[in-house]
Design a protein around this nucleic acid. Structure first.
Lengths: 342, 342
DNA sequence: AGAAAAACGTAGACCGATCTACACAAAGAC
DNA sequence: GTCTTTGTGTAGATCGGTCTACGTTTTTCT
């Protein structure tokens, strides 16, 4: 086994350039008190020695130049789109983005977030976290935090979310305009749903829209969560209903859940959209696949990701007043919605 | 703004327990030379003060207890499945997994890997990296590395890969048994393809299998890359051919590419599987959606991820001889493959 | 009982940066 | 020509852990 190559440290650079370590640190940080002559001398030594500052060591006192992104579900491709937007903005400013994925459960979430804090990340973007708002407020007092997907208000962290009330209205309006009355919704009934969580807000938006159209009697929440598994399950339960008890249209809550329901409904011989219309939310890539063609609500994830990153960065720079952004959603009509047959 | 809560350090614990910092460090590391009495005393103080060691600081001398996973494409859900397997194993041993996603390009990949090294990760799993093997060998001499998706041999890093020769054979055999002769393949012609990269091996496996069946005359590589975009493009180019020039079946190389081709082919009015059979590779979740039902090759991603993590951990523990695992693939027949019509 | 070995704790250097306090020199003010 | 002010560079503490070297006590072995 060949010897490991030793990497250059700040001391090596200082010695090579004939200056103090503090001086090198200054040019590294673009700090005040560096003459042009010294700067160029030091920079030359840095490139010559192939020096890269050890981010870990910097983090001990200053910034680690690392942002953490917390995700529950990597396989939800909408989340990865968000992550992409975050990364784009962060990289422009010299920050690295590292993504952590927790397994399901509040406990796992907490552990992962702690792990990120223990690695002295400069700030955190939490994508669709669960748990009570107070926990997040507490976290926000420890480290800059932006929550993606949860609605404000909040005092110690910023939020970026889709206008879920409007999004649900878009869906219901669309279905009603096609002639549907009996419209159910896959409601995410995760334990301890908080106000501000998208599942809460979308459900509320659905209720409001149904009422607006005078369809309160048909309001129907199919319980579950928003994941593929749970969507499959919901589809099964819907298929098990008698045709008379079955809705003619379904607000899926999220694309992954909607596609899950689609799957088991389809397998049970219920044809989409002839027997039932389905509308999703998120516009994940798989939704656009032509044989599926899921009608859905688009949230322009990259944009949301970028905004979240910008908020986080400005918070790291010192802003303390919290901000809460609402992104207008957009309906994308494809093939899973059609007039009811009866 | 409320004051930030100060977190307890090792000195705080030491003082509270009435012992030295070194002693606390010892119980933390399970090091030799700790009496049961002291251990319990210290542990009590730790829980009382709600102490968590700062992983960042530990990394300065010892391990950072962090593994890095490098990915090119978060939206390729197969990769996220791999990441899940890695995380499961790592967490059991107290390691955190942080995922970094690079934008396209060798340069971006290099920068991200450097960033992970600069954060003193204890080891790296690279999922489908590009670039020459020498680069990886060099990296492997700096830090423990396992490459997922590239075939060995290699001296300074381990590999875990699907047996792509066998996988391609599975696909060709299946199509031939259905009666196909004219079978094309979406070949990933990324610049600087290295031996050992899945695209290279799968293509070679396809060539071999075609020859075995006496179909050398029909060997046909449709150029592109393995992403959704490139798949869309390939589908378009295939649709543009005259029916006589068009293959009756397509080895898609990877599910994302296969689904891309499916999309544009479908839009061009070419019906799958009546006009053309398509087989993918990876068995990503979207492939299983019933209206699509992509016939594909499964690689049991979670298992591969777990194996990669185990290799990495054992390498971190000191193993130096490299290992190279080949995972047998499995054909999953669904609805996009059928006998040719003519 | 005396010597050797094992068990237990501690002091303090160390990892590689940042950052405060200060020394010194050059420039500007009066 | 002294007195500030401004610019430039350095010494050394600091962040929160790890780890080596060593001293002291206890146990084990003849």
């Amino acid at each position: 086994m060949t010897e490991q190559l030793k990497r250059a440290t700040i001391s090596d650079v200082a010695e090579h350039a004939g200056v103090s370590r503090a001086a090198v640190s200054k040019v590294l940080r673009n700090a005040y008190g560096v003459s042009p002559a010294m700067r160029s001398k030091v920079e030359e030594s840095m490139t010559l020695l192939n020096y890269r500052p050890l981010a870990l060591a910097r983090g001990m006192r200053g910034n680690s130049y690392t942002l953490g992104v917390f995700l529950v579900d990597l396989s939800n491709t909408f989340f990865s789109v968000l992550a992409e937007g975050i990364r784009d903005v962060a990289e422009e400013l010299g920050y690295q983005v590292l993504i952590g994925q927790a397994r399901q459960g509040l406990d796992a979430q907490k552990k992962l977030i702690e792990a990120m804090v223990d690695r002295r990340m400069d700030g955190l973007v939490l994508i669709a976290p669960f748990g009570p708002n107070e926990e997040l407020e507490k976290l926000g007092r420890t480290i800059p935090v932006v929550v993606l997907g949860r609605h404000g208000p909040a005092q110690y962290f910023d939020t970026v979310a889709s206008d879920d009330i409007a999004g649900s209205a878009l869906i219901v309006d669309h279905l009603v305009s096609l002639g549907h009355e009996r419209i159910s919704m896959l409601a995410n009934t995760q334990p301890a749903s908080e106000p501000g969580m998208p599942q809460t807000v979308r459900r509320h938006g659905y209720d409001l829209a149904m009422e607006k159209h005078g369809l309160s009697q048909w309001i129907d929440h199919v319980p579950g969560r928003w994941g593929t598994e749970s969507g499959l399950e919901a589809g099964r339960s819907l298929a098990a209903r008698t045709p008379a008890q079955r809705p003619t249209a379904l607000h899926g809550g999220a694309d992954v859940a909607a596609l899950g329901a689609y799957t088991t409904l389809f397998e049970a011989g219920i044809h989409i959209p002839d027997d039932m219309s389905i509308v999703g939310y998120d516009n994940i890539p798989a939704a656009g696949l032509p044989p599926i063609g899921l009608t859905t609500v688009d949230q322009s994830g990259v944009q949301m990701g970028r905004q979240a990153a910008e908020l986080l960065l400005s918070r790291i720079e010192g802003r303390t007043a919290s901000e809460h952004l609402l992104v207008p959603p957009r309906l994308i009509v494809r093939k899973t919605s059609a007039p009811p047959r009866r």
